[in-house]
Design a binder for these strands. Structure first.
Length: 501
DNA sequence: CGAGTTTGACCCGCGC
DNA sequence: GCGCGGGTCAAACTCG
């Protein structure tokens, strides 16, 4: 029997004074009223949340439909493109140049129309590929002169704006570039691709002319490169690549293309974080983006007129590398970097799922209990546990570790051991110890060569007998660099999560 | 004659 | 607004 019921009985039986019983009933009535008010508030809040949820669902559905329509339009456009290419009827060509004007005087109008088309979400381009790692894909719903049919039939008019220009207009951060420094006697480096020179200019501060090339393997390939001799050392040829090939590459061209694409992808990974700088990928936490003299002697980041640029240095002073040697390095760089990025992306997804679970609590903070019957505090503890578990799973995942090791050993390189480079980073492994805040980098090449690692990781100790190197990472440059090398860590850091590696 | 190169003109973003 | 400099264009030229 509850106190309230007892009081009522007492009142009815006259066992208690009438005044006292009435007071108690009145008190309970007040409590009941306040509870009802609270219940009403909760109901209202619940309605608002339901409304918000339904709106979000509607937005989601409309977006889904929009994407579906876009895909259909793309497919139709592709079909039209195929039909047009198989038909010489000029009317077909005209019908495929929607939204475009010819002539110099129409330049502004051309731009406006393109912008309008973009705003309307219409797809007038004829070739829309969805490459995750291609910055040019940012314009996948834009009308693309590069990809339009008549572009392939005739040279690009001067007034037309390229796909790249569209990207630049939308994004203040210009397209990432990959600059390769290599000792080369010839006019250009043989990278396996076919190039056509379209310009030459003497840039300020360098008497050597800078040559401009574009890829001619495919007429619509957006890739360009600049070739210039280094002002400090004329034997060094600096080749700067921009863009991603949209066509199959020969085996000889794949090495360089993979390396440059991987490097550019890393830049994009970094620039996708909320870090307000425009330098793209943060290799180090310092303001100095050039790591040439720090811990990654062959890979560094620089900017040129807001162009984020990765510099792959294939010219280590005092060491002569053959072209095959560099090729090996580039292959290793591309493979390990892509693996690293993929692994970090997967880890990030895992973290986000945990994060979503955590965020769900925020929505439920108005309620003392959630649908599972757990208190808010219990849920918070549970979500923390889940994040911790996810973090642990990631940092202890052998594949994640090997990917990290691959990336690190690739970046760090080894200035002595050719064999080790040829075998790639697969021979290295990293063990992380959260409790001791250390990492152990083990390797399977002669310990004598491991000294190169030691030089690059101060505060490290080398166990030559076990061919391993141990370093503490809090505040260590390696830790900063490695952490900033992934979307996963930088994103979590932006969100205030403490992830120890 | 076609493909590629050269080179002066032009465009455009950026800093002052 | 103006000048500078990087980047691109396209006509003229060269070469096989």
């Amino acid at each position: 029997m509850t106190v309230k019921e007892e009081s009522i009985i007492n009142v009815c039986t006259g066992e208690v004074g009438e005044t006292q019983g009435m007071k108690e009933i009145k008190g309970y009535d007040d409590k009941l009223k306040s509870a009802r008010v609270k219940m009403d508030e909760v109901k209202k809040e619940n309605k608002l949340l339901k409304l918000s949820l339904s709106q979000k669902m509607e937005n989601y559905q409309s977006l889904k439909m929009h994407i579906h329509e876009l895909v259909q339009q793309i497919n139709q456009s592709k079909g039209s493109s195929l039909m047009a290419s198989s038909n010489d009827d000029e009317s077909n060509l005209v019908s495929l140049t929607l939204g475009r004007f010819s002539g110099d005087s129409c330049k502004r109008e051309d731009k406006k129309v393109q912008e309008n088309v973009e705003l309307d979400g219409l797809e007038l381009g004829l070739d829309s590929k969805f490459h995750l790692n291609d910055s040019s894909q940012a314009s996948k719903i834009n009308p693309s002169p590069e990809n339009s049919f008549d572009h392939e039939k005739s040279p690009t008019p001067k007034t037309e704006r390229s796909e790249d220009d569209e990207v630049l207009e939308q994004n203040p951060l210009k397209k990432p570039r990959v600059s390769v420094r290599a000792v080369c006697d010839t006019q250009t480096m043989n990278d396996g691709c076919q190039w056509r020179k379209y310009g030459q200019k003497i840039a300020k501060g360098n008497p050597c002319p800078r040559a401009y090339y574009r890829c001619t393997v495919s007429p619509s390939c957006p890739v360009r490169k600049q070739v210039q001799r280094c002002v400090d050392d004329m034997s060094i040829l600096i080749t700067t690549y921009e863009g991603t090939h949209n066509h199959p590459l020969s085996a000889s061209a794949t090495t360089m293309a993979s390396a440059t694409t991987a490097a550019a992808t890393m830049l994009k990974c970094g620039s996708s974080t909320s870090t307000p700088n425009h330098h793209g990928f943060n290799f180090s936490a310092s303001s100095n983006n050039n790591l040439k003299n720090s811990y990654f002697p062959r890979a560094s980041v620089a900017t040129s007129l807001s162009h984020p640029t990765v510099i792959l240095d294939l010219t280590i002073p005092n060491y002569q590398y053959s072209s095959q040697y560099n090729k090996s390095y580039l292959s290793s760089f591309a493979t390990s970097t892509n693996s690293f990025i993929e692994r970090c992306s997967n880890a990030l997804q895992l973290a986000r799922e945990s994060k979503f679970y955590s965020n769900k609590n925020c929505i439920e903070t108005s309620y003392p209990y959630n649908v599972h019957g757990n208190t808010q505090e219990e849920e918070i503890v549970m979500s923390r546990d889940k994040i911790a578990a996810a973090t642990k799973a990631m940092t202890h995942d052998p594949t994640f570790q090997s990917a990290l090791a691959a990336a690190i050993t690739s970046f760090v390189g080894n200035v002595n051991d050719h064999q080790e480079r040829k075998s790639g980073p697969n021979n290295s492994n990293i063990k992380l110890d959260d409790k001791k805040s250390t990492f152990e980098l083990s390797f399977s090449h002669p310990a004598a060569h491991a000294n190169s690692y030691l030089n690059k990781f101060p505060q490290s100790s080398l166990d030559s007998q076990h061919q391993s190197l141990t370093s503490s990472y809090p505040g260590h440059p390696f830790a900063l660099s490695a952490a900033s090398k992934s979307r996963f860590m930088s994103t979590l850091a932006d969100e205030g999560e403490q992830i120890k590696l």
